[in-house]
Design a binder for these strands. Structure first.
Lengths: 143, 143
DNA sequence: AGAATATTGCTATATAAGATAGCTATAAAT
DNA sequence: ATTTATAGCTATCTTATATAGCAATATTCT
């Protein structure tokens, strides 16, 4: 039996969204793996880079990472010498990229830029500009 | 510190895709939970409904479900009396919905339709029609 | 027909992401 | 000053999916 039978899920946008995200995220993970970084690592470091001295709980709030999961994530990055913590007061630490962290982020940003260029290039031109606004609407109106 | 600091990931379509998918899938899982079905269960049953007598390995190929994971999935559905297996030859089984399976799929299809209507309604009208083609392009050109 | 190969469905186990529950110390609010 | 909220943390659980491999059967090739 050839696999040309109509997939009843092909017409469902929810399924398209899931499969597109899975394909894209798998691709990105492969690309980031050469730096031994996961997406979540890169996104956290991106936030630290954008706002040095940011605290962990703020990153967690923005990126939806539970503090229980943030702790080992930051510890790994710190142990690799990519970030450092500077005490702000008795309980908070400002996060910063180290020199090594800045260096790896040059490559990480290049990978992310390339990934996104490739991602957008897959999309026919007439649909391309609509993707980000549509996705943002889905995400931000989620209750 | 108010959380109005610019999120450096807001501008990245890859991140938008991930967050939109996560929000939508979480929503859908909540809705399907009233039937005690997960998305993957519903999608498998949808394929069986669309093509009675389909075999498990075909579903796995189309939906990207490993046979090791298909086995317990089908067993649960069979134990709940929602599907049944009819031997086709010495090693394959044709899958069918039972009467109970047909009944639950009436509700499941209603939930899916409603979910997708709500999903699309969140998107501003001028972007709406572009979402599915854009997502399909991302998914299907994935190597 | 016989031999080699591929497919189907399966078991058992590993991995990885993320969620839950709860705790201590500190800071902020009343 | 007392209460409440926040930051960071530990330990553990759940869940989805991946890996490795197997026996029986079907298919393909010579």
């Amino acid at each position: 039996m050839a696999d040309d039978v109509t997939d009843p899920l092909e017409i469902r946008p929810g399924y398209q969204l899931k499969r597109a995200a899975a394909a894209a995220m798998s691709d990105l993970n492969d690309r980031l793996s050469v730096l031994d970084l996961r997406q979540v690592d890169a996104s956290v470091m991106l936030m630290i880079q954008a706002e040095p001295n940011v605290i962990a709980s703020h990153i967690g709030r923005v990126l939806d990472i539970k503090s229980a999961n943030m702790v080992p994530l930051l510890r790994r990055l710190e142990e690799r010498g990519l970030i450092e913590k500077v005490p702000l007061d008795g309980k908070s630490h400002g996060l910063h990229l180290t020199a090594a962290g800045e260096t790896i982020m040059i490559e990480a940003n290049a990978i992310l830029d390339r990934f996104e260029t490739d991602l957008m290039e897959r999309i026919p031109a007439e649909h391309r500009e609509h993707l980000a606004p549509a996705l943002r609407a889905i995400w931000h109106s989620d209750t």
